[in-house]
Design a protein around this nucleic acid. Structure first.
Length: 834
RNA sequence: GCGGACGUGGCGGAAUCGGUAGACGCUGGGGACUUAAAAUCCUCUGCCAUCGGCGUGCGGGUUCGAGUCCCGCCGUCCGCACCA
């Protein structure tokens, strides 16, 4: 009697079997080819969300598939466990961040296990564990000794809500990436990692990352922002000088002013003695930084009264303080060429400065420039003395050569990328292992004193850094002179923690961060999967960290992740009350809000978020439908790089499919009379599916693999009993095993498979069966499909042509005329041109 | 503003090299089974229509043949942004 598949029972059973037999533990000494499959580790917020389920399901399918194709797979999981939410919880709920974090980890680990992921839990790590961050401190000190870490007083991005410093990468539209608070500028002494030292390498390295999305490579390229040009000094009328950088040295004879940033030393010096200048500088700082504000903001300047001598003798230029010049980029000063730069054009128009054409714009070569906007395109230099007649690129080179020969400037490369500020005024992070001694200065904590562990007895009653307030922790003896000294009370940006966890997964000795040889055997990560929101921050920092490790001789590895896949989000419908409040599905009934009876509007499909009340908690869904149905749904329909809309119908459909599979397995397992005889068509379909699913999974095109499996199941269900059909059902258990592993194990056991299907090999394709012996040829007349014809494969051209011309519909359309031309595409199509 | 991606039925999507557009799933219609319902199974489901015609955002082009290539638009989404 046919039974229904009991997902909950099967899930529990097989998860326990895998666990007990250590099925997914990666063996370091395996002779098999290695495959490192990694998904971005989660922050332990307390609950798994649908985005995690989708991310980890994709990685899991690949990991399981790779095992079946004979690889030794490393597929680990851990916890990105430091960070602000734990401190917020400490403040709100009066629990210690560590306790809160560890409880969350336990809860989320149980949820991940419930989904049956093929993870090697023996390598689990949490970044908040001293056995992890202690090694990170050692690496930090290695970088420190190699000159990759330095401390400087600098204007930093201060988040007034989180009360901490943010890296440039963490400021979005002038607001903190976490808090959303308007970021302020503050002067603080901060630790920096010298990422700019690797700017060129990080840029060039992108070229080797063929298996990264172009989009991410481009984003990193833009972020690094390499520009080449000329750097030179203007002599000023007060005897001082100002250095500028330009990417357009060719337009040097079109210069009509020099402008410096509001916080440029020249502007600051002037402000000290000129109240009007000081007032102007103050005004510049008030300008907003959002896109809309910048768009409409007027170009403003303050005439310093100084003049700058043109290096090629083309007169003296006025020097302004201008609100559009950034101190952080280049030298914080520019020369303005209004005819060929839009900002300079607007500025010159406002202050009635000369606008001189030096690049011919089509016909126009005269100096009088009367366009409505600057001309920034290519052209030939005019009104530029020795540059006249040269093309823009040529002229750039000539000017740089001359500047270098005459000694007033040099070719130079400028990057948008800034060094990575890593100091955070927070408790729940990796303590920076440096001691400040009045006599010795900065002193590295000796290796034998690592880890510098966080004190447990801290309070979060007042905002700010508890380490700063702790009565004893920061008071230490200087490791060098033994005198009284202070610990650095800052902790590392948590992006440092996630910059090397993938190496620690590969090798976890107790006494050092990793074993070089063992790490090099597993790395680089062949396939890394995560959200596109990490396209810059995490992925750039991890690439830097890896290069820094190589620089200090700890590993021979340039790029940490050779394959990257950025998956789409999980979305859901939203609902809004009449007054615009977001409503959760359970607040709604029959198109009205239950509480008020007012009608509800269905909003856009959006990323699941608490604020929009459109989240779906995976936990009850897994309990209701079983892990396999949830996994199958996560892989169906939407291409993995695109958004997936969660829907009740979708999960129902997935559950139906699991039951359909079970009916096939169960019917065969029941043992009735075995099928007899062949079924060539089904054999062919089976082998096409084996090959097709393998290719799709390898390409991470899970939605296509799913579609192919549906086709196969449809074909098996329709097929008459035969030995071939029985064989197809057995093979089906292997084919679905990476996606729906629990029912696959159940079927494998039922049908008498040896061992676990998780350890079974991927079925071998009979390539002879991939080729059809008959083909359906399309018949077109003048490019329009008129009929199809089934012919033996490989039939000679003239025979195909004859068969087509004998076709009724073709004959009718030709109406007795001879065709002008007949195009024959073998085994595909014939086009009769009348 | 700069850079990028995308645009195919009611919906998610497929079409690997320029060669039968709409696989597969969802939704919906009809039917079988059932006292009834659920479940399951069968069947239809791009649009208009009588032959047949029209269809891959819009307008052109190349080609025997275009969702796919080229030119020009429109729209949506994402990233960056006063970067000299």
């Amino acid at each position: 009697m046919a039974s229904r598949f009991n997902a909950l029972k099967a899930d529990t059973h097989w998860q326990q079997v895998w666990d007990e037999s250590q099925t997914f533990a990666a063996r370091d000494d395996s002779p098999k080819p290695r495959s490192y499959v990694l998904e971005m580790f989660p922050y332990p917020s307390g609950k798994i969300h649908m985005g995690h389920v989708r991310n980890y399901t994709m990685g899991d399918v690949l990991a399981r598939f790779r095992r079946m194709t004979g690889h030794e797979v490393l597929h680990p999981m851990g916890w990105d466990a430091f960070g602000m939410p734990a401190e917020n919880a400490a403040m709100e709920k009066k629990v210690h961040p560590g306790e809160w974090t560890r409880q969350n980890i336990a809860a989320m680990k149980a949820q991940l296990r419930r989904l049956g992921f093929a993870l090697d839990w023996s390598r689990e790590l949490a970044t908040c564990d001293p056995s992890y961050y202690g090694h990170e401190q050692a690496l930090f000190l290695d970088f420190y000794r190699a000159g990759l870490v330095y401390r400087k007083e600098s204007a930093v991005n201060w988040d007034p809500v989180d009360m901490t410093v943010l890296a440039n990468e963490q400021v979005i539209d002038g607001r903190g990436w976490r808090s959303g608070a308007l970021v302020e500028k503050r002067k603080l002494s901060q630790w920096f990692l010298r990422i700019t030292r690797f700017a060129d390498e990080l840029l060039d390295g992108l070229g080797s990352l063929e298996h990264w999305p172009d989009k991410v490579r481009l984003m990193q390229e833009n972020w690094i922002g390499k520009s080449q040009g000329l750097q030179f000094r203007f002599r000023l009328s007060d005897g001082d000088s100002v250095e500028v950088f330009t990417t357009r040295p060719d337009t040097i004879f079109g210069a009509s002013f020099v402008a410096v940033a509001a916080d440029h030393p020249i502007a600051q010096a002037l402000a000290a003695r000129d109240p009007a200048a000081a007032a102007f500088i103050e005004r510049c700082k008030q300008g907003g930084t959002t896109a809309a504000e910048l768009e409409t903001q007027e170009k403003l300047g303050y005439d310093t009264g100084l003049t700058a001598a043109h290096p090629l003798g083309a007169g003296d230029l006025p020097v302004y303080i201008a609100n559009f010049v950034l101190m952080e980029y280049g030298t914080g000063a520019v020369f303005g060429v209004p005819a060929h730069d839009q900002r300079d054009f607007e500025f010159a128009s406002k202050y009635a400065l000369p606008i001189r054409r030096v690049v011919a714009d089509g016909e126009r070569t005269d100096p009088a420039f009367d366009g409505a906007e600057a001309y920034t395109g290519p052209g030939t230099l005019v009104n530029s003395h020795f540059l006249d007649g040269l093309a823009v690129e040529e002229a750039k080179r000539v000017v740089i050569e001359r500047a270098e020969r005459e000694g007033w400037g040099q070719g130079s490369t400028v990057y948008r990328l800034r060094d990575w500020g890593v100091s955070r005024q927070r408790y729940w992070g990796t303590p920076i292992p440096i001691i400040h001694c009045g006599a010795c200065g900065e002193v590295a904590v000796p290796r034998e004193q690592l880890p510098v562990a966080l004190p447990e007895d801290v309070s979060f009653d007042v905002p700010g850094n508890p380490l700063e307030r702790h009565p004893t922790w920061k008071h230490v003896h200087c490791p060098q002179c033994g005198g009284a000294a202070l610990r650095d009370t800052d902790t590392l940006d948590t992006f440092a923690d996630s910059s090397w966890y993938f190496i620690r997964f590969a090798s976890q000795p107790e006494d050092r961060p990793f074993d070089r040889e063992q790490a090099e055997r597993w790395l680089p990560v062949g396939q890394y999967i995560g959200g596109v929101e990490h396209a810059i921050l995490h992925l750039l920092y991890a690439r830097f960290w890896t290069r820094a490790l190589r620089h200090v001789g700890l590993i021979d590895l340039a790029e940490p992740f050779t394959g990257l896949f950025t998956q789409g989000m999980v979305t859901h419908e939203t609902y809004k009350a009449a007054d615009g409040r977001w409503l959760a599905p359970e607040e709604i009934g029959d198109g009205v809000e239950l509480a008020t009876g007012a009608p509800v509007t269905v909003g856009r499909v959006e990323k699941m978020s608490k604020s929009k009340k459109n989240t779906v908690d995976p936990a009850p869904i897994v309990d209701q439908y079983g892990a396999d149905a949830v996994r199958w749904f996560m892989l169906s329909d939407s291409p993995p790089e695109r958004d997936l809309e969660w829907s009740e119908n979708g999960i129902e459909g997935a559950w139906r499919f699991v039951q359909r599979l079970w009916r096939l397995f169960d019917a065969l397992g029941e043992g009735g009379a075995p099928g007899e005889g062949a079924d060539a068509a089904l054999d062919r379909k089976l082998h096409q599916t084996i090959a097709g699913v393998a290719a799709d999974v390898e390409a991470l095109s899970f939605n296509k693999a799913v579609a192919k499996l549906y086709e196969l199941v449809n074909a098996i269900e329709k097929a008459a009993p035969s030995a071939a059909r029985d064989a197809a059902v057995r093979t089906l258990a292997q084919l679905v095993a990476p996606m729906v592993p629990h029912i696959a194990e159940e079927a494998w056991a039922l049908l008498g498979g040896a061992g676990l299907v998780a350890d079974a090999p991927w079925p071998i394709v009979d390539t002879a069966l991939l080729v059809e012996d008959e083909v359906t040829v399309a018949i077109q007349v003048n490019g329009k499909l008129r009929d199809t014809l089934t012919l033996p494969k490989g039939l000679a051209r003239d025979e195909v042509e004859a068969a087509v011309l004998a076709n009724d519909k073709v004959a009718r359309l030709l109406a007795g005329r001879a065709p002008r031309k007949v195009i024959v595409v073998p085994d595909r199509l014939v086009n009769v041109v009348a």
